[in-house]
């Protein structure tokens, strides 16, 4: 009756620096460079841990974080952040971005009074949702104050070894 299926045939993987890689499904264990296809293998062993084997060379890999379609991957000692999008979700992203104002900010406030033990980000750091930005000691416990959003830190108000009151602004993040 209605069009049969919206089977996902392709995935777009976007890096945080806006590079776009496309992969058709089912996902092949091969990557095409020019005209030749090269085999990619994901392996793990005792000596090397998890690694990718590509053109006879091993690259260390580690999955640092993943939430929903967002992945932070450490590849050969360099970390990359990706979102994996379907053709529709990519289109949706464009639609929403154009509907919405471009600049959005998230302000992280102290959830309780306490003492700042450590500030884990600096201006310019990119943070993922769920990543700790500040460590606040309250109730004799060190609490990680986490970023509720993905974005880039634009302002850091929190200073180590200072006391803050509830709702004091700690960090501003640009989405």
């Amino acid at each position: 009756m209605a069009n049969d299926k919206i089977r996902i045939k392709k995935l777009y993987t976007l890096s945080s620096e806006n590079r776009k890689f496309s992969f058709s499904l089912p996902l092949k264990h091969k990557i095409k460079i020019g005209k030749r296809e090269y085999e990619v293998k994901l392996k793990a062993d005792e000596k090397y841990g998890t690694y990718i084997l590509w053109k006879n060379r091993k690259y260390p890999v580690e999955i640092i974080r993943s939430s929903q379609n967002k992945y932070e991957i450490l590849f050969n000692d360099i970390s990359y952040t990706f979102t994996v999008e379907t053709p529709f979700s990519l289109q949706r992203m464009k639609v929403l971005n154009s509907n919405r104002g471009k600049i959005e900010q998230e302000i992280i406030k102290a959830p309780m009074p306490g003492k700042i033990i450590d500030v884990l980000v600096r201006e310019g750091t990119t943070v993922l949702r769920g990543e700790p930005v500040v460590i606040l000691e309250a109730m004799k416990m060190q609490n990680e104050i986490i970023s509720p959003v993905n974005g880039m830190v634009v302002k850091v108000m929190a200073k180590p070894n200072t006391n803050v009151m509830k709702d004091d602004i700690l960090v501003e993040i640009k989405l």
Binding site: I8, L11, T13, S15, R19, F21, F23, L25, P26, L27, I31, I33, V40, L42, I52, W54, Y59, V61, I63, S66, N69, Y71, I73, F75, N76, I78, Y80, F82, V84
Partner: peptide
């Protein structure tokens, strides 16, 4: 990073997504 490293990392992210969801 060599030209292909980011692509290989992207491939891994995609693979994880496929395994988890599709």
């Amino acid at each position: 990073n060599s030209d292909y490293e980011e692509m290989l990392a992207a491939w891994l992210a995609t693979k994880l997504f496929v395994e988890e969801n599709l």
